[in-house]
């Protein structure tokens, strides 16, 4: 028996969420008295696994796995899960993990609960706490399959060091044929993504037009943050859909979320509510966002933000 963790990597480095799911797996392994096994693809830089608690690491190095393909990856993970007799499999909330999780659930005839925010409330039966109604509530769900898949919410558990003795194995897996072809991938490089960001800066209609977005971008640059926007802003075409955060857009679970000129409609708040600290800058003291925020500045974004950028630059130096 074991707990299996899929540790995602990119360019020979583990992603932050990989170390978070491993930290979670380690904590769970102590409760359940099981070993935690990691499965990773195409990586040789594995120090982070020992540092974050892996008892065993299985690495599949295969040039045919250079590109993520949901069906092939889920098939590889299912084979490892069977070999390791894994009863619990832990995945992150990355776009790729959400893509492969249901496929994996079918292969293993297992349950799948995404958006899990904490260690299980009980391990027998397995009851997990997860968000529902797009962060407006939590549910306690009993997962009652032989094998259960937990999808951990981004930034819900954190990364915890736990130096451990790890045994390493390289595995060769016969790959299935994946009939989906990747034509091309466009990825913005050198910019923090909303999913990975510790800090997210978001702009709303209060910025009056796309030409003023340098305020958001400059502030994001000083803080090493990702940029986001409200629904009306993306609907009007001021910013791309990929930046829309909220109930029908992307969820945000950053450490710090700063909303500039966003009124804070219930759908917007739902999407960003998992963020730890929320700051709002708005000239309307009645804006609903002030009820959801930790810190607020009532003032004109065009005056407050440039001052904030200047002071933050000084602070960072």
């Amino acid at each position: 028996m074991s707990i299996l963790v899929y540790t995602e990597s990119e360019n020979n480095n583990f992603k932050k969420n990989a170390l978070e799911v491993l930290s979670y797996g380690k904590a769970l392994s102590k409760i359940m008295n099981e070993k935690v096994v990691c499965v990773s693809f195409n990586i040789d830089n594995t120090e982070d696994l020992s540092l974050h608690g892996a008892d065993k690491s299985i690495i599949i190095n295969d040039t045919s796995l250079a590109d993520f393909k949901a069906k092939t990856y889920s098939n590889c993970i299912s084979k490892i899960a069977k070999k390791e007799k894994s009863k619990i499999i832990i995945l992150s909330s990355s776009a790729d993990c959400r893509y492969l999780a249901p496929l994996l659930a079918v292969e293993l005839d297992s349950s799948y609960s995404p958006n899990v925010v904490d260690l299980p409330k009980s391990s027998n039966p397995l009851v997990v706490k997860r968000t529902c109604f797009t962060n407006k509530a939590f549910s306690f769900s009993e997962l009652n399959s032989e094998i259960n898949i937990i999808g951990l919410s981004n930034n819900a558990f954190g990364v915890h060091e736990n130096q451990s003795e790890t045994t390493f194995e390289n595995e060769k897996i016969e790959l299935i044929e994946d009939t989906i072809k990747i034509n091309s991938t466009e990825k913005i490089t050198g910019k923090v993504t909303i999913a990975d960001a510790d800090i997210v800066i978001s702009g709303g209609r209060g910025l009056k037009g796309p030409e003023n977005w340098h305020l958001i971008e400059d502030l994001a640059e000083v803080l090493g943050a990702a940029t986001a926007c409200s629904k009306p802003v993306s609907d009007m075409g001021w910013r791309p859909h990929s930046e829309h955060v909220g109930q029908t857009g992307k969820p945000v679970a950053s450490n710090l979320y700063i909303a500039i000129g966003v009124s804070g409609a219930i759908q917007h708040i739902a999407g960003i509510n998992s963020s730890k600290v929320k700051v709002v800058v708005n000239n309307d003291p009645e804006a609903p966002f002030f009820k959801a925020a930790d810190y607020g500045v009532i003032g004109d974004a065009f005056e407050v933000v440039p001052k904030l950028i200047k002071k933050l630059k000084a602070f960072k130096n």
């Binding site: 407006k136 939590f138 306690f140 009652n144 930790d294 810190y295 607020g296 500045v297 003032g299």
Partner: peptide, 25 residues
């Protein structure tokens, strides 16, 4: 394969801390 046993609402938030707009420090 899963059953919801119960729900919970997020804990009510504390009051927002307001900072004067001329004091971003």
């Amino acid at each position: 394969k899963s059953i919801i046993k119960s729900f919970e609402k997020p804990k009510p938030k504390g009051e927002v801390k307001l900072v004067p707009s001329d004091n971003v420090d």
